[in-house]
Computed example of a mutant assay.
Amino acid sequence: MLREATPEVEALELELLLEALLQRYGYDFRGHERAALRRKLRAVMRQRGLRTLSQLQDRVLHEPGAASSALRALHVPPATLFDDIDEARQLRQLVGASLRGAALPRIWLADCAGAEQAWTLAIILADEGLLEQTEIHATVASDELLAEAQDATITQEQLANYQAGYARSGGQGELSRYFAASGKRLAPTVALRSHITWAQYNLVTDASFNEFNLIVCRRALPDFGPVLRQRVLNLFHGSLAPFGILGLDRAIDAADALAPHYAAMPQPGWCRRIA
């Protein structure tokens, strides 16, 4: 009978699997928290009836479907429209402070959790009268996620279910006014979609590509280890305009070298650049 791997062996298996993902597919998860990686990969193993990470590594190297499943599990889980009511409320309070007065306001959704997270932000901006002059740059980690985001649609039933979250977040009226028929499904109106620019972008390796008035990365950061987290914070700092707002999963540590450059805001995890 096969036995479960010991913690020591599993730790070695995990490092080998991460190296395989990097060498074979170009995705570097070596800077992520190991506990988060194990949790996500064990879920893939259960789905595929595998007992060890070595078995998963074999599938990942030789079966495109297994590789896609593993990479999807390790990337940011997809959001649904207005699924985080607290964040949506906070954004309603903050977008005016970060965007009004800018000649061409730009927002970066870094490691965006899919199309519906970007749609949520665009709808909030439209509600607040700020969408027309604002550019949303939504970046995802893989070409597969990029294609899915660009082609995303929802059903009429999903839209009806999202109405309650929209209202709870402070939205007024019918959410349906922001959607139009796309075959038998629904897609955001052209007026909404035209303000969202999608791109593949790797937070681990890529450099700053623009200056932004608002940067949001609250869903990916919890899985980053301390070295990668610091690398990403420095990247955001170099990409944030003076007095721009940064949305993180938690406040910047007081001992961090970047801390003097930011002032905490009343909303948890949000801060404004002051220097």
Rank of each mutant, 00 (worst) to 15 (best):
residue 40 K to Y: 06
residue 12 L to N: 01
residue 70 A to K: 01
residue 38 R to Y: 02
residue 25 Y to F: 14
residue 52 T to L: 00
residue 28 D to H: 15
residue 55 Q to M: 10
residue 28 D to I: 15
residue 59 R to G: 02
residue 60 V to D: 06
residue 43 A to D: 08
residue 37 L to I: 14
residue 51 R to M: 09
residue 37 L to C: 10
residue 45 M to A: 10
residue 71 L to M: 11
residue 19 E to M: 10
residue 49 G to R: 01
residue 31 G to H: 09
residue 27 Y to N: 03
residue 13 E to N: 12
residue 48 R to F: 07
residue 65 G to I: 02
residue 66 A to Q: 02
residue 55 Q to G: 13
residue 63 E to K: 10
residue 44 V to I: 07
residue 72 R to H: 09
residue 63 E to Y: 09
residue 47 Q to S: 14
residue 17 L to C: 04
residue 13 E to F: 09
residue 24 R to V: 09
residue 34 R to G: 02
residue 21 L to M: 14
residue 62 H to C: 05
residue 70 A to S: 09
residue 75 H to F: 10
residue 16 L to P: 00
residue 31 G to E: 04
residue 67 A to K: 05
residue 57 Q to D: 01
residue 41 L to D: 02
residue 16 L to M: 10
residue 41 L to P: 04
residue 18 L to Y: 03
residue 23 Q to G: 01
residue 37 L to T: 13
residue 48 R to T: 08
residue 73 A to H: 11
residue 33 E to G: 14
residue 12 L to Q: 12
residue 73 A to Y: 06
residue 14 L to R: 12
residue 62 H to Q: 06
residue 14 L to Q: 11
residue 63 E to M: 04
residue 20 A to I: 03
residue 19 E to V: 05
residue 14 L to W: 13
residue 73 A to N: 11
residue 30 R to I: 12
residue 28 D to R: 12
residue 12 L to T: 11
residue 26 G to I: 06
residue 29 F to Y: 15
residue 45 M to Y: 09
residue 36 A to N: 14
residue 18 L to A: 08
residue 13 E to V: 02
residue 52 T to C: 02
residue 54 S to N: 00
residue 14 L to I: 14
residue 38 R to I: 08
residue 35 A to Q: 13
residue 27 Y to T: 09
residue 17 L to F: 08
